[in-house]
Amino acid sequence: MSDAVRSWMEKYIAAWTSNDPEDIRALFTEEAVYATRPHDADAWRGREQIVAGWLEAQDDPGNWTFDWTLLGADSVLGTDGGLAFVQGFTDYLGDNPSYDNLWVIRLEPDGRASEFTEWFMERKA
Rank of each mutant, 00 (worst) to 15 (best):
A4D: 12
V5K: 05
V5D: 02
V5L: 02
V5E: 02
R6N: 12
M9A: 04
E10D: 12
E10F: 00
E10Y: 00
K11R: 15
K11C: 05
A14F: 01
A15H: 02
T17S: 03
D23K: 01
D23G: 10
D23S: 15
D23T: 09
I24S: 04
I24C: 08
A26I: 07
F28W: 13
F28P: 05
E30N: 09
E30S: 12
A32E: 07
V33E: 14
A35H: 00
A35S: 15
R37T: 12
P38K: 02
P38W: 00
D40N: 10
A41V: 14
W44H: 06
R45S: 10
R47V: 15
E48S: 01
Q49A: 15
I50V: 13
I50W: 07
I50C: 07
I50K: 11
V51D: 03
W54L: 04
L55Q: 14
A57T: 15
A57L: 15
D59V: 14
D60N: 13
P61R: 13
P61S: 13
P61Y: 15
G62H: 04
W64T: 09
D67C: 01
D67K: 08
W68G: 01
T69C: 06
L70N: 01
L70P: 01
L71W: 06
G72P: 00
G72S: 07
A73D: 08
D74W: 02
D74Y: 08
D74L: 04
S75L: 10
G78H: 08
T79A: 08
D80W: 07
G81W: 06
L83H: 07
L83I: 03
F85I: 04
F85S: 10
F85M: 08
V86E: 05
Q87R: 13
Q87D: 10
F89H: 15
F89R: 15
F89W: 13
T90K: 14
D91A: 14
D91S: 12
Y92V: 00
G94I: 09
N96W: 11
P97L: 09
P97G: 06
S98E: 09
S98Q: 11
S98K: 11
Y99N: 06
D100R: 06
N101H: 05
N101R: 07
N101W: 05
L102A: 01
W103F: 05
W103C: 01
I105E: 01
I105Q: 01
R106E: 11
L107K: 14
L107P: 11
L107D: 08
E108M: 10
D110Q: 02
D110F: 08
D110S: 12
R112W: 09
R112M: 12
A113Q: 12
A113V: 14
F116P: 06
F116G: 03
T117Q: 11
T117L: 01
F120W: 06
M121R: 03
M121A: 03
M121H: 05
E122M: 07
E122R: 14
E122A: 10
R123A: 07
K124P: 03
K124C: 05
A125C: 00
